[in-house]
Amino acid sequence: MLATPGPLPTGDDWLFEVKWDGMRVIADVADGTLQLATRTGRDVTANFPELAGLAELAPDVVLDGEVVLLDGGVPSFDALAHRMHSAVSPSVALARPVTFMVFDVLRLYGVDLTDRPLAERRATLDRLDLDGLDTVASSPLYPDGEALMAVTGERGMEGVVAKRADSVYRAGRRSPSWVKVTHRYSQTCLIGGWRSERTSVLRIGALLLGVPDDDGGMTFAGRVGSGLAGSAVQQVLAERLAPVTTAASPFGGDVPRVDANGAHWTEPTIVVEVAHLGWTAAGRLRQPVFRGVRDDVEPSEIRRERG
């Protein structure tokens, strides 16, 4: 289930929790065997071996939550990025372990809980012994959304998610019963092309970004170069972009010459997230900064967010 962007709700019908800056993961334990998967179904069990203890929680359970990696006591998507795309050894994982912040339980002992209200599901989650797992925690709920917004803003965190206490869970759907409110703008985009660095044709200097439009095409949203310098980022992007190279631009309209000059076009299948300072009058992202590839987001889910 996905949250809808909007203003912070008020009232006794709403519960509030931190919007964790991490990777959405579904943990499925069946017959004592754990599988971790993104919302798109990609198996990431080997990416997070430090979460193996979830298999001991119950012989049959499904949990929804966010994998986060702390940097200076605050969740950092940038710090987590290198763990999102490949398997690591247990020793590497334990040197800097992630934490699985669980915020929902969808099945327990073979019983589907998705039609139960959130308040009941959270009560069930609270009865599970998460305290016995060092790398797993329950995402706390708070009654005062405005106070939580203030605290998360002071700490440099991403924001708040408000959830109706009576909301049922609908997998894969964006629901007005869950509302996300952020302190900074972020946007998921599709890569439609890339340009080499001026000093090296082998390095990616900028990505050409797009957002789906109402007609089924893709609108050019600008290019991003900030945040691409790291060797790990370059490797991940090079591996992803090579198989989807195409001869023609995937954008619905003309891309400005200053952006299209020297571009290598790609099929719009790779989802990335960027931070930005809003949108220009021409519909371009203002000062975007690359944050990472999002394997946990489907291209069909992307829409232009506020900002």
Rank of each mutant, 00 (worst) to 15 (best):
A81W: 13
L128G: 12
L108M: 04
L133N: 13
E146I: 14
V98R: 00
L106R: 01
E146H: 10
T135L: 02
P143G: 04
D134A: 14
H85Y: 07
A137D: 12
D112R: 00
L130W: 12
R107H: 00
V88Q: 07
L125N: 08
S89V: 05
S139L: 13
L113P: 01
H85T: 02
F103V: 06
R107W: 01
M101V: 12
R121M: 02
R107G: 00
T114K: 01
T99M: 11
L125T: 06
A93K: 08
L130S: 09
L108V: 00
L108C: 00
M101E: 15
H82T: 12
F100P: 06
D131I: 11
L133G: 08
D144Y: 07
V111A: 02
D115S: 05
P90I: 04
D126T: 15
E146N: 12
A93F: 09
E146P: 03
D144R: 10
L113K: 04
R122E: 12
P90Q: 11
V105I: 11
V136N: 08
S91P: 00
L130I: 08
S138C: 14
V98K: 01
D129P: 08
S89I: 03
T99K: 07
T99A: 13
D129F: 08
E146L: 15
G132N: 11
L125R: 01
P117D: 12
P117S: 10
S138T: 14
A137G: 08
A87C: 15
G145I: 09
V88D: 02
S139T: 15
V88N: 02
L133M: 08
L141I: 05
E120W: 05
V105T: 06
T135W: 00
L113Q: 00
S138Y: 12
D129M: 09
T114G: 02
G132M: 07
T114A: 00
L113A: 00
P97F: 09
D134C: 07
T114L: 01
E120D: 15
L118W: 08
Y142I: 08
L118E: 05
D129Q: 13
A137F: 09
F103A: 05
D126R: 14
L118C: 03
T135P: 04
A137L: 07
D131F: 09
D126K: 13
Y142P: 05
D104T: 04
S86C: 11
R116T: 07
Y142L: 06
S91T: 14
L118G: 03
D112M: 00
A81E: 12
G145E: 03
S89F: 02
Y142N: 04
D131W: 11
P97L: 10
F100V: 05
T135F: 06
V105K: 03
R83D: 01
R127Q: 15
R127A: 14
V111S: 00
D134H: 11
P117I: 06
R121V: 05
A81N: 09
G110M: 02
L141N: 06
L113S: 02
R122G: 08
M101W: 06
R121S: 02
